[in-house]
C-alpha cells in the first residue's frame, strides 16, 4: 500500500534518510513530502524548472527476495501508471504521468495544487467551532450552526456532490481506487489562480475534485469493489468528525445519479456495511 497522504508512521521500518534515490535523482537532494507503507513521496521539478511534480519512489525492500522485489515493484508501478493514463484519457481528473522507470522504481506525476478534502473538512469543523461542550450531541449542534449559515451549507453540499460525481466518473470508466480516503481527494482551486497564495477561507469549498494516489487502484467493474471504495470513504468521513458523517449522504446521493450502474452499487454498499470491507470467503 502506498498511501502517500497518510501520516508518516511513527515507527517507520526504514528511515527516509538512508535511501539513495535512483538516477536521475541521486544528487538532487530532495525532501520527503510524505511516506506511505511502500513508497516515498518527494516534491521536485521535472522536464522544466517551473514544472512542479511529485516523485514517487518505491525503494527495494530488504526483507524480500531481490528478484521478487523487482517484480512486485515493477508490477505495482506499472499498474498505477496504466490506471492514471486510462483515467486521463477518459477525462477523469487525476494527476498526469510525466515519467517513470519501473526497473528503478520511480514514477513522476503532475503536481496537484490545492488541499485535501480531509483538510478542508477539518478546517470547516474548526471554523464552526463544533465542540460538544454542554453535553449536547455534536451532530445536533452542527445542524444548528449549519442552519444559521445557509450559504456555507450550500457550498459544502456542493463540494460533497462533486466528490460523489468524481468517484462516480472513476467507477464508470472501470477503475476502483482501492484506498479512497478523504486524504486522497484533492480540492483544486478554480481557475488559473493555483498559486499556493495566502490563506483562503471564503472559497476553499470551491474547486474541482482531483483523485490522487492510485497505488492500490485496480481496473474492475465489479460492484463489490465499487461498494468497498464507497465504504472506505464513508469510514474516512466518519473518522474526520461526527458532524461530517451526515454530509456523506450527499456524496452517495450524487454518486447514485452519476452513472448507470451506480444504484446497484449503493445497494451493495448496504451489504458491505453489515459485514465490513473484507468479504468472508467460504467455498
Amino acid at each position: 500500500m502506498a498511501s502517500e497522504s497518510a501520516d508518516p508512521l511513527p515507527h517507520a521500518p526504514e528511515s527516509q534518510y538512508t535511501h539513495t534515490l535512483p538516477l536521475p535523482f541521486t544528487n538532487s537532494d530532495l525532501a520527503v513530502l510524505t511516506q506511505g507503507a511502500e513508497a516515498l513521496v518527494y516534491r521536485t521539478t521535472f522536464l522544466t524548472p517551473h514544472t512542479p511534480c511529485v516523485l514517487k519512489y518505491r525503494p527495494p525492500k530488504p526483507y524480500r527476495h531481490p528478484i521478487l522485489d523487482k517484480r512486485l515493484t515493477k508490477a505495482r508501478l506499472l499498474a498505477e501508471a496504466r490506471v492514471l493514463v486510462k483515467c486521463r484519457r477518459e477525462g477523469v481528473k487525476v494527476p498526469a504521468v510525466l515519467g517513470g522507470d519501473w526497473e528503478m522504481g520511480w514514477l513522476v506525476l503532475e503536481w496537484i495544487e490545492g488541499r485535501t478534502v480531509r483538510k478542508v473538512l477539518d478546517e470547516w469543523v474548526h471554523r464552526l467551532g463544533l465542540r460538544a461542550r454542554d453535553g449536547r450531541d455534536v451532530v445536533d449542534l452542527a445542524d444548528e450552526v449549519v442552519q444559521r449559515d445557509e450559504g456555507e451549507m450550500r457550498r459544502l453540499l456542493g463540494l460533497m456532490g462533486r466528490v460523489g460525481r468524481a468517484v462516480g466518473r472513476l467507477h464508470e470508466v472501470g477503475v476502483c481506487h482501492g484506498d479512497l480516503t478523504t486524504s486522497n481527494l484533492m480540492v483544486r482551486p478554480p481557475g488559473d489562480l493555483q498559486e499556493p497564495g495566502p490563506e483562503r477561507t471564503e472559497d476553499d469549498l470551491e474547486g474541482e475534485i482531483v483523485l490522487i494516489d492510485f497505488g492500490l487502484a485496480t481496473q474492475t467493474i465489479h460492484e463489490e469493489d465499487r461498494a468497498v471504495d464507497l465504504y472506505v470513504l464513508e469510514r474516512a468521513f466518519a473518522a474526520t468528525h461526527p458532524a461530517a458523517e451526515h454530509l456523506f449522504q450527499e456524496v452517495l446521493r450524487v454518486y447514485g445519479e452519476s452513472f448507470k450502474g451506480a444504484k446497484v452499487v449503493l445497494k451493495r454498499l448496504a451489504d458491505v456495511r453489515l459485514r465490513g470491507r473484507k468479504r468472508t470467503m467460504i467455498g
Partner: peptide
Amino acid sequence: KEMEAVMSGVITLKGS
C-alpha cells in the same frame, strides 16, 4: 494541455 498529459503517460508506458 489535456492531450500532453495523456501523451507523456503514453510515452512513459511505451514498451511495457
